[in-house]
Amino acid sequence: MDETGRERTARAERAPKESGGAFAIEFRDLARSFGDIEAVRGVNLKIPHGQICGYLGPNGAGKTTTVKMATGMITPTSGTALINGIDIVKNPIQAKLMIGVVPETGALYETLTPIEYLALVGRLYHLERDAALEKASVFLELFGITDSSERIMTGFSRGMRQKVLISAALMHNPDILFLDEPLAGLDANTAVVLKELLRELASQGKTIFYCSHVLDVVEKVCDRVVILTEGEVVADGGVEELKEMTHRASLEDAFTKLTSEGDLNAIVKAFSESVTGRAHGAGNEK
């Protein structure tokens, strides 16, 4: 008998309990190439339920490509991404029902109102229309954008869009969240609320895969940090573990040591000299 969308949703909600000890997220030799460029090279990772995992790396390290593969937006060249033990390539529907995504691009259908957009997302996750609308209204109220709920999003600030995107990711109460720079554009108060919300969700057993460049936040929020550079994992552990491993006092220093090829101080100096023109004795002061 064919399973309806709503039945699948219900089954997905039971999945963590039934996953028989499977990890919430598991990557096995996950790799993706674009032509000759190897964006991600054989990433192996096991993230248990209820963990907030920070996924860090310099620009172009392959973070967003990993998220895209893990969320089924693109197919890996090789390797496997498992969500609650389910292969996202082989069984994408079942896997996607368990995840919520906040993409880095912040793209949404601006010509819709927030309510309409969230209703659309609700449809895609087979939520009852009324339930979806009610939930959407509550989210928008909590985020303080109820006044704008009937406005099309063309004129929205990045922060307001981000609030809608976060609401959309939470609409179907997913077991696992993939957040790519979720704090981008958010005001300080909302950022605090979101950070606390992530902790609260993690305490309820939800798993959060958190990509960010803001190391302070990662240090405060994440239980575990994975550092990626040039498509490969170069470090994996708790914040304190990474500090010990690199003999550095802060996560920022540890990150720098692991991902920077050159001496950052030397780069800063060279930059400064280039800006002022002193390096070549051709200052632009008049």
Binding site: G5, T71, I93, A107, L108, L124
Partner: peptide, 17 residues
């Protein structure tokens, strides 16, 4: 087609059979 075509990521991440 749309200027906001990038918003179609939602169709790729949603569990659409």
């Amino acid at each position: 087609q749309s200027d906001q075509w990038k918003a179609s990521w939602v169709f790729f991440s949603a569990p659409l059979e």
